[in-house]
């Protein structure tokens, strides 16, 4: 139908398509070209119109955010704040949420609220301080329970990718069903300065981009360490786990290099 539209109409059609269905790569390129000739038209004009239509049609039919989803978002908020403004502020993002939820406490009962609050607190601590590695002997029970419980568990050895990490060994174990796993690492040098190790999980079925698996510290002069993994975003069938060394708090997109990698043969 492009042949029947004027240039102006085609531009507006692309903006309307963008606002309702999204654009393909070639359509994005076409829009970029068309926008050059119409500098007075904002790229998001019709997206704002579609947003207003959405609000009008939604009216009072807005669903409540599920508690479990809210807890996840609180964790994300802490991570975002730590990344943007430093770890010292990370707790601030969710403190107010905890304080203002007295109504929620009445609604879901004491046990439920305590569980929710504990989840939020764990999430904040988890991202504020980074995932705290535990010596093998102190987490061995949980790890062994996981190994015995997770019937779909897969595992792969850590393989060094750069010379300075040739001494690293260990393995990663993972359960798709539990969306959790453990890293067992030996010989990983202690992170120093304002740097932290960051885990990345690659799931080709989910996305081309790796999922952020969180940051963690490795203390000096430690033996083998076992670190639980619970990525914030759902992964389906991860095939590669990788560790990078990043600025404190982690990054959204890593510039690498990959230090050690564990590839799961599925």
């Amino acid at each position: 139908m492009n042949a029947f539209l004027t240039t102006d109409e085609r531009l507006m059609q692309l903006l309307a398509d963008k606002a309702t269905e999204g654009l393909s790569g070639s359509q994005h390129d076409e829009l970029d070209q068309a926008m050059i000739a119409h500098p007075r038209i904002a790229r998001d004009e019709l997206e704002l119109a579609a947003a207003a239509v959405t609000l009008a049609m939604m009216g009072d039919n807005e669903e409540k955010l599920p508690q479990r989803m809210r807890t996840k978002l609180c964790s994300d908020a802490s991570h975002f704040v730590a990344e943007r403004w430093g770890t010292a502020n990370a707790g601030t993002a969710t403190v107010n949420l905890v304080n203002e939820s007295k109504t929620a406490a009445r609604r879901i009962g004491r046990t439920g609220w305590l569980a929710a609050a504990a989840s939020i607190l764990l999430a904040v601590v988890g991202w504020w301080r980074g995932m705290a590695p535990t010596r093998v002997e102190s987490i061995d029970v949980q790890y062994q329970q996981f190994v015995q419980r997770a019937t779909d568990m897969v595992q792969a050895p850590w393989l060094p990718k750069v010379d300075d990490y040739r001494g690293v060994s260990g393995k990663v174990v993972w359960s798709d069903a539990e969306q959790a796993g453990y890293m067992v690492l030996s010989g990983l040098p202690a992170n120093t300065g304002r740097r932290q190790y960051q885990l990345w999980i690659v799931d080709p079925q989910r996305d081309a981009h790796p999922v952020d698996g969180g940051v963690f510290d490795v203390p000096a002069s430690t033996g083998p360490i076992t670190i639980p993994m619970q990525p914030r975003l759902r992964v389906r069938h991860p095939t590669v786990f990788a560790i990078t060394l990043e600025k404190e708090g982690g990054v959204v997109v890593s510039g690498g290099p990959l230090l050690v990698v564990a590839s799961i043969d599925r």
């Binding site: 908020a77 943007r84 990370a90 601030t92 993002a93 107010n96 949420l97």
Partner: peptide, 11 residues
């Protein structure tokens, strides 16, 4: 740069 506002967006 107000960290508390980040969390308030959720509610």
């Amino acid at each position: 740069g107000e960290p508390a506002a980040v969390g308030e967006c959720i509610d």
